[in-house]
Amino acid sequence: MDLSEGSRPAFASLIERHKGSIFSMALRVVGNREDAEEAAQDAFVRAFRALSKFRRDAKFGTWLYRIAMNVCLTKARQSRLDVTSIDASAEDDVDSAPLQIPDHGDNPDRLVERSEFKDRVQNMIASLPPKYSAVLTMYHMQDLSYEEMSETLDLPIGTVKAHLFRARGALKKLAITAFEPQELR
């Protein structure tokens, strides 16, 4: 496929190949289908315009992901300006002493098997600060490496690891506050 010359059919097949992962990421970061679809479209259009800048030695998926992530983070920051207090509370105390967590047995699968738990956790990802939902999505859903995440987010690997650590903590904290203790038993 000769992408450098803006081959439209070739680009259409690339959209088909990557639209699921790009849209999924967008959905987790921006939080609703309408904005996610718009962000994903913007990402592909920007990528097409910038094809001449794509380095042949780079991986197309990572490059596209980086563009999409930038679009989504911008959109998420715009749409979440009014929820900074939620962001702040999610960031607070992630590293502090453990919260009082209800005992829910020894098997985490028991939790995940419950569909309402899974659904609500998946919705919670979108309510995290965008940088946290971004790293969670990339690492745990898209299986990107630290190096790829670092390149995508233009952050040092150490910062990516710290974000990931805090993101899991913030998600766990949201889960504790979102569920009644008896729901976690």
Binding site: H104, P108, L111, Q122, M141, R168, L171
Partner: peptide, 8 residues
């Protein structure tokens, strides 16, 4: 449980 839910 939370991480597994994310993965799934």
């Amino acid at each position: 449980g939370v991480v597994n839910a994310v993965k799934e």
